[in-house]
Design a binder for these strands. Sequence first.
DNA 1: CTGAAAGCGCTAACAA
DNA 2: TTGTTAGCGCTTTCAG
Lengths: 336, 336
Amino acid sequence: MSVKIKDLAKQLNLSVATISKALKDSHEISPETKQRVFELAKKLNYTPNPYASSLRKRSSKTIAVVLPEVADSFFSLAINGIESVAQEKGYHVLIYLTHESFEREEAILKEFQSGRVDGILISVSGETRSSDHIKEVITAGMPLVFFDRVCEDVETAKIITNDFESSYTATCHLLKAGCKKIAYLSTSSALSINNKRMEGYKQAVADSGIKEKTTRIVSCDSNTEGNYKIIFELLKNKNRPDGLIASVEKLTTPIYLACESLKLSIPREIKLVSFTNLQAALILNPTLTTITQPAFEMGKAAAAVLFKSLEKTNFNLKKETVIVPSVLDARNSSKN
Amino acid sequence: MSVKIKDLAKQLNLSVATISKALKDSHEISPETKQRVFELAKKLNYTPNPYASSLRKRSSKTIAVVLPEVADSFFSLAINGIESVAQEKGYHVLIYLTHESFEREEAILKEFQSGRVDGILISVSGETRSSDHIKEVITAGMPLVFFDRVCEDVETAKIITNDFESSYTATCHLLKAGCKKIAYLSTSSALSINNKRMEGYKQAVADSGIKEKTTRIVSCDSNTEGNYKIIFELLKNKNRPDGLIASVEKLTTPIYLACESLKLSIPREIKLVSFTNLQAALILNPTLTTITQPAFEMGKAAAAVLFKSLEKTNFNLKKETVIVPSVLDARNSSKN
DNA sequence: CTGAAAGCGCTAACAA
DNA sequence: TTGTTAGCGCTTTCAG
């Protein structure tokens, strides 16, 4: 096996306690001994056993990140953000994917009762209808912060973006571009972010000057092909919408494809805004107007808040809600 | 604190040893006691402390995944693949990003000497020129498998795709479409996958029927804007190439943008193939011909091999090299 | 079938 | 400034 404190102690004729303290640069140890300890440790390539230390200190220096999936650009960027601050703070990050399954999410959260992690960052699955599993782990004393997909009814830190406003803005943007019949393409209606986006859309239509204040909400909760069909049906109708809001990234491809099949010209016949961080928005034809979410920043912010609560005992997560605004990047898909 | 074996023991008037065995469904324990133990454990919501168990058993049931970044679609999909098999096997996955820095990679690997993880999955950084840090951890007895970006000179399992052939195929594809002057856009020349791709390209040009067997390799190792400039300069030249091979996903956007600025028509004036898994390839204009890598499968395969070596003592990682082939998806960007 | 006891490697009182 | 000692919670001989 690898070298341990005991080995260092033996070689230097010191006690394990002394070595342990020296390694942490404790002030109770003389500079000379520290020096000797450091040198030998380096020479023998000593690396402390993290599990022994975790067991003893009841803290693991690791956090968990629970995500639905790491498929779209949002979560990829968020992970980068989280990891960057974790690395800086010397924390390790365990990653768990729910694959949008509520059962998995429950099982994963339950395991955290064990003390494996010091804190949790979570973006809930689209199927999550109850938040008992989350409340339970919080009640057990575990710091938890939501990001992006939150449970409204759980009192803890939430890092979100301005979903309502973004959607409101997007809708107004389309209205201003001349759209009269805007459809909102939704998924995972259980998610609060989705509801907020939907509400923003509804509100904007209600506030608009157009006579026919009808809203059209189309549920697209399927795989790419399934969504393609749904959108195709929607658009081939002669009473089709003249504006579309794609509430999630994965709807973008089927929309473009459906328009292409139907020879619908974007933006002449139908205008489009998508919620996405895809860099490729710049090179689509036409270039895609997006609501760009601050994914990296949200990841960073979530991690930052969690670490603050881990480092300060008197820090109350309940009071922390950070809203990092999204921006509308107007491009050709919504041009007048 | 949470409930532990001792608590169960007390309540049931049994010893901790008995509880421990019962919980693992050991045959030395009577069915009745097991029953009682299971029930109480469930009732009290007992979750074993993983660190105590890791310390004792010298195994952590966790693996590390070391990646350059999780920005592009390849690594996102790979993580999904890895996580899916890890979850199935009951393993936890720690994620570490090197951000393409060799120093970070070294530091991260060094920490693994501590026994924090049972095995490692790694795709090396673009700056990694030496493999000593990797050999060291393997020598210390740690199972390690490379995926995608490997170190040729390290003897251990490697999950790769057919980079040479893919590039060869891509080049032939462009030649067949009529290209006479194909340029290869490269990054991170230290990486073996990049060299293989480059070699495939060179070989294809050499094997081709064209008289002027000149190859043109353009180094694009910068951020998006920097790469845009490099590509712009390349294409504005009157002796510009008529075919382009983008060896990595992130070059796609600057290429399309540069062509647009220069009013170069794809594929009429310049044809293009990219190494990418972007779903948006389908909706670019023109649609993008891609070498699509089996990212998810490679992640799965890498994890599968690692777990095999973790489960069977007589399994030799050195002999394991899996090649999961990429496919050429011909679309309009390379049409004749 | 059950239990006593040792110990994984480290930390933190407390003593010297 | 250094050392002794008692665990952290669990697993695993070995005895009963």
